[in-house]
Each structure stands twice: as structure tokens, then as C-alpha cells.
Design a protein around this nucleic acid. Structure first.
Lengths: 172, 172
DNA sequence: TATTGTTATACTCTATAACTATA
DNA sequence: TATAGTTATAGAGTATAACAATA
């Protein structure tokens, strides 16, 4: 079936493993901090932070999902959870009646504020402490490029319907 | 309480977000491939791959846990799952009667072999396609340094008992 | 007394499929 | 017909605490 692809060389393997392990360790540490400081999961923090960044404090569900969550129902679940805690509100979008607009509340901003210093501290201690200024710049540049490429690249055996513009043929 | 730490600058934020997003996208894609090709979760793949790397095909539970899993019971659960499928065996360690030695079976190696080409293909397509040789080398170097540092750095509010050598005082 | 590993249990999160309603 | 979102449901994974056995 699949012809053996050129195996990875040592450097590639090293980059791959280091990426996975480093991000795993970092995420684990950050998750602990977020849980202790504000009883937030990482996804919940990402959602709140995204809303907090928005000038209006609002986003549509679909836009919110973007990098954070990989299924609609997963986002609904998290939005409900956050709403129950009073950290966001949900209301019908004004322009598109199908849409739901999620808005961060003052309570949500408060939790964000409570959590943020510790969050930054973890990043400083764990990720940035071992890296030079140049390292950080390089990391930002290279990983941003990788990320952008991955965003554009559809999965190998893509689901029938892609995110947008299902223009061309999908099945072989 | 906590004095506001120096907030992150744009580059740091960029590096952090890019790291999290890139690793998340990559891991998600890889997980799909592993699931389809061999019905393996990422953790299970990591465990099998670790065993496969070992010259004896064996590891002790404690050693296996290392970077892969963050709780003992989690490892037990995964080891049981893999054992049920016949991909590993578990037996009492010869030197330490408390210990359990996990060994990859031929079946385990077969699944690993089945899964590997697609795994490499995903990495090539998603991670390495957008990066130059130099990028990959830099990434490997910088992230390995970050990872090593994180491994050595205890969590801020450390659990009473650390992995090894609980030499010094833990509580303030 | 400390360490190794398992068990029981509870919980969080994720994903699929079926469904409703609007564009 | 396609898109936005919810619901129901099921399953995987994780972590904590209590426990047994060995060092």
C-alpha cells in the first residue's frame, strides 16, 4: 500500500520530540496553575482570553471555535459551562438569527485578571528562563510559520466537508 | 498578594501562542492518523514507541511513565489497555519484586510498523514542509533546551513528594 | 518508613449523529 | 440545500485516594 516514506533523520526526530514534549510539559504546568488560580481548564482560559481580547468582548460561536476547539458540540459544552459560572453570556446574534454571540462578563474579566499574573509567571519560569532573546524571536518566527502552514493544510483523509469553500472534489 | 509580573512582550506572546497552537494542530492531526491506521491514542503510541526503542523491548513502569504520563494510575490504565490488545505483556521484575516490567510483543511491533509510515508522512506534510533545514535544526536545539529546563524545574506549588530525591524542604 | 503498582471512583472533555431553525 | 448551533449520548482519558506488597 503505502510505500515507505523517507524516514526522518535525527534532527527531524529531535525537533518533533522536543516540540511535543516541551509543549506537553508547558501545557501541563499551565493547566495546573489555571486550575488552582481560577478553576479554569486550558480551553476555558483560551476562550475567555479570546473574548477579552476582542474590542467588544464578544465573538460568534463559529469564530470562537477557530483554533481552540475541534468540534461544534465541544464548544457548546464549554460555552455552557462558562455561562453557568457567569463568566460569559450568550445571546442571539443581531445580524444572523442563526448565530449566537458570546460575550465575556465582568466576572469573566475578573477571573482572567486573577489568573493572569500566575500564568505569566509560569511562562517566565518554565519557557522563557532557559532561552535567550534571540531564541525566543526565532521560536516565534519558525513556529508561526509552521502553524500557518498547518492551518492551511487539510488533513490527509479530510472529512467530506471542510471548514469553508468546498469548491473542488474531495474524494478520489 | 502577587505583585504584577512584567507582562510579556509581543515576541514572547507570539512564541507562546505559536508553540501551543502549532503543537496542538500537529498533535491533533497525528492523533487522527494513529487512530485510523492502528487504533492507537497518542499516549499508547508513545508507550509502544518507547518500548520499541528499548534494546530489550522492555521497561519498568516507573521508567515508562517518565515524559509520557503524569500519574501512576494513568499509566496502569494504558498498560492494561495495551495488554488486553496483546500489544504488550506485563510481568514481575526480576530484580525488584515490587516492580512490573512491560514488554512489547510481536503484535505490538506489528502495529507500530503499520502506523509508522503514515505517521512520518503527516510530520513531513504538516511540520517539516514549511520549514527549512536550518529552521528544523534551530527548532530542535531551542526546544530541546526549553524541554530540559522544564524537566528540571519543579512546579511552583510543588506536590509534597517529588519524583526523586526529596532532599530539601518543600513547604515554606 | 518509603516506594511500586493497582483499584475504585468520579469527573472532565471530546466527538458523532440526529435534530431544529435560519439563510 | 447549506450553515449555525444544540442535544443526547457514549467513550476515552485523567487524577485522587485508599490499599497491598516489597525494599
Amino acid at each position: 500500500m503505502t510505500s515507505t516514506p523517507s524516514p526522518l533523520d535525527a534532527t527531524q526526530l529531535g525537533a518533533y520530540f522536543a516540540l511535543i514534549e516541551a509543549s506537553s510539559l508547558l501545557k501541563h504546568a499551565v493547566e495546573q496553575q489555571l486550575r488552582e488560580a481560577g478553576d479554569l481548564s486550558y480551553v476555558q482560559f483560551q476562550l475567555l482570553a479570546t473574548l477579552g481580547d476582542s474590542p467588544t468582548g464578544s465573538r460568534r460561536m463559529t469564530d470562537l471555535a477557530d483554533g481552540v476547539v475541534y468540534s461544534r458540540s465541544g464548544l457548546t459544552y464549554q460555552a455552557q459551562t462558562l455561562e453557568k459560572r457567569g463568566l460569559v453570556t450568550r445571546s442571539q446574534s443581531s445580524d444572523d438569527e442563526r448565530g449566537v454571540t458570546v460575550t465575556i462578563t465582568d466576572g469573566g474579566r475578573a477571573v482572567l485578571a486573577e489568573v493572569f499574573p500566575g500564568h505569566v509567571a509560569v511562562l517566565d519560569d518554565l519557557l522563557f528562563a532557559a532561552l535567550s532573546r534571540a531564541d525566543i524571536e526565532t521560536l516565534a518566527d519558525v513556529l508561526a510559520r509552521a502553524r500557518d502552514h498547518m492551518r492551511q493544510t487539510p488533513p490527509r483523509s479530510a472529512q467530506p466537508r471542510r471548514r469553508k469553500r468546498t469548491t473542488a472534489a474531495n474524494q478520489p
